[in-house]
Design a protein around this nucleic acid. Structure first.
Length: 660
RNA sequence: GAACCAGUAGCUCAGCUGGAUAGAGCAUCUGCCUUCUAAGCAGAGGGUCGCAGGUUCGAGUCCUGCCUGGUUCACCA
């Protein structure tokens, strides 16, 4: 509703500026006044116009006020301070419209392709991967159609680099470092299962060991690196025993990753794999197109002689004939393509710009209400389509800013400027560990590192907090509380509640920081259930639900009952009105969060909403309220607060437990 | 050397396209459980918004320079 009223005001002011002053195309800034006493909406437009109109700001504001006329939903307009133009809402009318769920709809045509998670399938997921997956999943929920908005068509991809060095490393570890035969490796998965061990945890340690093994013996170093390179080539080549083993391992780990993410309510539609990008020859098609469009050219001089290269974004103009020494190599002098080259091909496919190439598709994993597909060479005849996106969002670490910029630059240079503009690198800063946290986990930290604010997580070093371990600890901590608070519930119910709280805590923790803030992970902060946390917001919703339950009133009934009550007299009191005003801002916040691709804005709003509700809760005792009209209003307020808290938490992927 | 990000309360962070008295959480201190659950609420203390200039009626926000911290910048993959 806030969005609706703001738009109405902007339209009216634009009208007045045009008819009264003959001004058009002026940007009209709006803001929320510092206190409710000054109104609900304001604009400093009079200051902007002062110089242009050669008039005092206050006089301009005054003229605007008298010429504005009436606006539906606005009670009064007044000039304050040196020329602020303040608007007061018709509180009773706004309450009714918010309660009725009236709001501006958000919608758009064309597929939004979101790619997130993308963990190398050679080890367990860690906290850094959680940030990625939670950000991507939440952004998808903000865009996706639901009962609040028409939304945008969304598909979620999880890109799987199953032929990269990281997978090669664990294959090397088993076949060469440990000297297992292929048959022994085949037997490994059943053995682990029999022992109750997890393949992703097993490989976590193995991966850390093999990384050291390469360097351990100076005499063997070159030979071991050669084995690694050979293994990598065999993976890329495919159709050989090494590739088969790699596929068995990476697929097993992939299943683990999907299971880990499913614990957090994160699901995927499609898993495009590097192996198919290679074997379906995406690159060959892209290369032809890049050469045709004069983006890719052969360097004939300088350090990159013999390579096929591309100009970097923002490169300076060069002297005629001089080699561009700063150019990005796409095809090496030995004829092999670099990662950026393959990535360009893949992104052409995403936008439906890659001629005559597509993945094959086959089902991989079944979720309660949909199927997750995976790429293959020969797929099913009937399958959904995932390319041909209108806009794409790649959830990737900020450390990949440069490579991502290269891909965008390639699209732009090829003349696909529309695709380049609709390519969003949804970047975010890394999750690191505080030195203290690292020590607590049993890692040895040297004196120099102890002084740093945070230490980078490294899968290669086996340095990090595994996602499932963190979630298990959160569940255990929540369970302890639930056990003492709700002895009347059975154990299954208490575990269910504890799990919902743990997921709420974890997801909120990863979402409350804006994207470019480095999260220095510490168990003390992550395990907190008080203050600015997911459980705080969940608790507010549970309290609202409890009021309605004790009143034996369905939320929908409480809201419907508002119709027969006079609310005007009760919302002059800011204590109740402040909550309704906050509730009215849902669309405003959602729209801003989507535009900025910043889920933290929604998380912060959820917290503010919960804070405002707790305020209301302590100032008004609903069930003992003697005035029937006021009681009805308070009940409806609780019901709408519950509805909106549940909705906003849902966008964050957080559920409302039945009790806390 | 270059590019990008950051520097706001003791700590961790918000602060949307420049607007009214710079806000939260944690921590510290003081109150509030016989009332819809205290995972909560109320209150207190705590700030030269890294430094110096500039633009503007108005700057935490924009521009320039500097300082500090972080990340990135291979024919590796």
């Amino acid at each position: 509703m806030y969005r609706t009223l703001k738009q109405a005001l902007l339209d009216r002011i634009a009208d007045v500026l045009r008819t009264r002053y003959d001004l058009t195309g002026i940007h009209i800034a709006t803001e929320q006044p510092p206190t409710l006493a000054l109104g609900e909406l304001a604009t400093p437009i009079a200051f902007e116009l002062a110089k242009r109109l050669r008039k005092a700001p206050r006089a301009i504001a005054q003229e605007l006020a008298t010429e504005l006329g009436t606006i539906d939903g606005v009670a009064s307009v007044e000039v304050a301070g040196a020329g602020y133009f303040n608007i007061r809402f018709d509180r009773a009318a706004t309450v009714r419209r918010v309660a009725a769920g009236e709001h501006f709809d958000l919608r758009g045509e064309g597929l939004r392709l979101i790619e997130h998670t993308s963990i190398n399938p050679n080890k367990a997921a860690h906290v850094g991967h959680l940030r990625n997956a939670i950000l991507g999943d939440t952004f998808g929920r903000l865009l996706r159609p639901d009962d609040f908005k028409t939304g945008y068509p969304v598909a979620v991809q999880n890109y799987i680099d199953n032929t990269g060095v990281q997978v090669a490393d664990v294959v090397v570890a088993l076949l060469h470092m440990e000297g297992k035969s292929p048959a022994e490796v085949d037997a490994l998965l059943p053995e682990l299962k029999a022992r109750g061990e997890r393949v992703d945890y097993y490989l976590w340690d193995l991966y850390a060991r093999v990384s050291q093994w390469y360097e351990a013996d100076p005499a063997q170093k070159d030979a071991r690196k050669a084995v690694r390179l050979q293994t990598l080539h065999e993976l890329e080549e495919g159709s050989n025993e090494t590739a088969r083993i790699a596929d068995v391992l990476s697929t097993a780990v992939l299943h683990r990753h999907l299971a880990t993410m499913q614990r957090l309510g994160i699901e995927y539609d499609f898993l495009p794999r590097e192996s198919e990008i290679l074997h379906a020859h995406f690159w060959e098609s892209a290369r032809a197109l890049m050469i045709e469009r004069r983006v890719l050219y052969e360097e004939t001089a300088g350090k990159n002689k013999g390579c096929w290269v591309m100009r970097r974004p923002g490169a300076e103009d060069l002297a005629e004939g001089a080699p561009d020494e700063d150019a990005k190599v796409i095809v090496r002098s030995n004829g092999t393509v670099t990662y950026v080259g393959k990535d360009i091909a893949y992104h052409l496919w995403k936008f439906g710009l890659l001629p005559d190439r597509d993945f094959g598709y086959k089902p991989f994993h079944r979720y309660p209400d949909h199927t997750c597909w995976i790429s293959t060479l020969q797929g099913e005849a009937e399958h959904p389509h995932f390319g041909r996106a209108t806009a794409i969002y790649n959830v990737i670490d900020s450390r990949q800013n440069d490579p991502q910029a290269n891909v965008v630059e390639a699209l732009r240079a090829m003349g696909f400027s529309d695709a380049a503009v609709r390519y969003t690198h949804l970047n975010y800063a890394m999750v690191a560990l505080t030195p203290r946290c690292a020590v607590d986990l049993g890692y040895t930290v040297n004196e120099e590192d102890m002084k740093k604010p945070y230490l980078e997580v490294s899968g290669r070093k086996g340095f990090g907090v595994k996602a499932d371990d963190l979630l298990d600890r959160l569940i255990a901590a929540a369970k302890q509380q639930v056990d003492t608070r709700h002895p009347e519930d059975d154990d299954d119910q208490r575990l269910q509640t504890a799990t919902e709280i743990a997921v709420g805590a974890l997801r909120f923790f990863m979402l409350k920081y804006t994207r470019n803030t480095v999260i220095a992970f510490d168990f003390r902060d992550a395990l907190s259930f008080e203050g600015e946390t997911g459980p705080y917001v969940q608790y507010a919703a549970v309290r609202a639900a409890n009021i309605l339950r004790k009143a034996a009133l369905a939320p929908a009934t409480a809201i419907a009952d508002l119709a027969s009550v006079s609310v005007a007299g009760h919302v002059q009191d800011d204590g109740v009105w402040a909550l309704w005003l906050e509730l009215s801002r849902v669309t405003t916040v959602l729209e801003a969060a989507i535009a900025a691709a910043e889920p933290a804005m929604v998380a912060r709003y959820a917290f503010q909403l919960a804070q405002e509700f707790n305020n209301f809760y302590h100032r008004n005792h609903v069930l003992t309220e003697g005035d029937p009209a006021r009681r009805a209003l308070l009940l409806a307020t609780s019901a709408v607060a519950l509805r909106e808290l549940t909705r906003v938490l849902g966008w964050l992927g957080i559920s409302v437990p039945q009790s806390m």
